[in-house]
Each structure stands twice: as C-alpha cells, then as structure tokens.
Design a protein around this nucleic acid. Structure first.
Ligand code: FES
Ligand code: FES
Lengths: 146, 146
DNA sequence: ATAAATTAAGATAAAAAAGTCTTTTATTGT
DNA sequence: ACAATAAAAGACTTTTTTATCTTAATTTAT
C-alpha cells in the first residue's frame, strides 16, 4: 500500500500532464492523457469527470475539445487534488488508526507520526499543479509508470 | 486512506498491547486483545496467526494459553511488523505510483517525497515493539480506537 | 441542419481488502 | 484418559476499490 490511493496517483499524474499541455496552449483528450501517464483510460475518465465537476480542472466537449486547466487554477497546491480524491485523512488522521489523533490521548506513534504528516502536508502545499511544466517538457521528470 | 492498511493498524496496536502484557508476565487471549484495541475479533485472529507463523509473536494453545512476545523479539523495530503485513512499498515505493522510484527518472514529487519516506522509515526503525510498556501501563498513551 | 468528435453519465464487472463463522488441532488441568 | 480451553486453519461473506463498457449530451466544423 502506498501513501495515496491509486485513484489519487492517477489524478496527480494526469493533472500534472494536463497542466503542462495547457501551458503549451493545448487541450488534451482523455486518450492521450491515459497513454502518457500509463493509466486505464475509462477509469481515468471517471476521475477527471470528478475533478471537473469540482472545478479543479476544465473541459470542453466536441471536436478539438479535451481537458485543460484555467490560469488561476494552475497555482493551486497539489493538496487540493489529494483532498478532492482521497479526503483529508492523510492530513490529520492517526497513523495507528485511532478514531481521532489527539494530543491528550495519543497513540504510541503520535509524536513521530506528527512529523510525517507535517512533511506530507508541507510537500502537498508547496507543490503547485503548474510547477513542473519545464521539467516535464524536457523530460527531466516522468509521469509514465514504467 | 491512511498511510497503513487497516490490517496493519490492527497489527501494530495488537503487538504493542501484547508486548505490554508480556512484560507483566501474562499471555493474552485473542478476545482480550481485540476488546482492548477495538478491533474485530475474528479478523484480528487471522492477523495474529500470520504474525505468529512469521515468528514475530508467539502463542500457545489450550488453557492459560494466548499470545506473548519473546524477550529478544521485544527489541524488534516496528518496521518488522509493517513489512510483514503491508510489505516494503512504504519504504521505497514512488509517491505518485511510478513502477520504480528512481533518481534518474524521478516523478515530480520525488525530491520531497523522499523526505516523507525517510521520516516514515526513521519512525518505524527507532520505535521498538516493547518500547511503550510503561506509558501503556499508566494510560498515558492509548490503543483504543475511541 | 448534419455529421463527427469528444466529454458526461450510468450501469456493470472484476479484484482486493476487510470481516465472519465453523471445524480442527494442540495444550492444560483434573 | 478426559474434558475444557484456546489458537490454527479453512471456508465463506461483505464492502471497497479498481476497471470496463454502453449510451447520452455537447460542441465544432462543414
Ligand atoms: S494519536 Fe495517533 S498519530 Fe496522533
Ligand atoms: S520517483 Fe516518485 S518518489 Fe521517487
């Protein structure tokens, strides 16, 4: 098991890909996205529909349609995507599964786990959706599974 | 979704509980453990059977039987439990779901995610199974879900 | 207007994770 | 030896996650 659900992994990869295409002035179709990030096409379609309904990405139907991201939305933190897909448990849940993480009734891992959560929160907050376009363009970083 | 599977959460809570009972010189039955850590009894039984087969905890059948942890095993890092239950993906997997985390073909989150993974590894390595007996005894920390 | 393209929505399906119940096996105390 | 106790093992069910397919609704270009 990873830190994020598969759904969320696909969502993050797709959003980065859409962002970098948007910068180059294009809308991208579901087929292209799925192939470029190595994800099951129909499943990804569902995920993007959901993000679209929630206003995190945009889409247009018809010829030359596809997905893109509004200028303003490119500055959103990646945390917004994670929250939309996986909820906020990762940001404030207890590492050992207690119903509530609490300072007064902590689990054995509480003290150390807090650092982990803070690190995750930090990572997802400082990272913006539109941040990696350059590196994605020149192949310095990768979104393909293998 | 949390960082660990529910199975793993139950396993960790149970192992801490068994450890603290072992220190007080007792074996504990599945029923007591399940009730003390708020987990489904039969499901936990499966988990402990597995840990027992793998030698991470010990058990004896029959009257006055139950689960306990060998002296030496009390010093194992919690990481051993996590690995036994959830595998090692959490220690070296890619945060965005790429098949292999790699320095030469990194995902966008690689640099930051490495810190998260290291923090998790650190937490699970420095924490030993038998470490919290005092705090568990005096109720300073909790294993009960609610 | 019509046809083509493309996302949205709805309905299933398959796989994995979580949870439950029943039967068997081993151990202990009498 | 026997009965009682408790874990081990096996079979099964339910729920959640992941994945696929089909039909509908929009948009664009001709
Ligand atoms: S109580 Fe478990 S992480 Fe805070
Ligand atoms: S490549 Fe994704 S975390 Fe290293």
């Amino acid at each position: 098991m990873g830190v994020f659900s598969k759904t969320c992994e696909y969502a993050m990869r797709a959003v980065f890909y859409i962002a970098s295409s948007t910068i180059s002035g294009n809308r991208v179709g579901i087929k292209e996205i799925a192939s470029k990030i190595d994800s099951p096409e129909y499943f990804l379609a569902k995920i993007l529909q959901d993000l679209s309904r929630k206003g995190l990405i945009s889409s247009v139907k018809g010829p030359n349609g596809g997905f893109y991201i509004e200028g303003e939305a490119l500055n959103r933190p990646l945390a917004d995507i994670v929250t939309a897909v996986d909820g906020d448990e990762i940001f404030n849940g207890c590492g050992m599964g207690l119903a509530h993480c609490s300072e007064t009734n902590p689990c054995p891992l509480h003290h150390e786990f807090k650092k982990v959560r803070n690190q995750i929160t930090h990572m997802l907050t400082i990272t913006t959706i539109g941040q990696f376009n350059k590196e994605l363009g020149n192949g310095l970083i990768s979104l393909k599974k293998s």
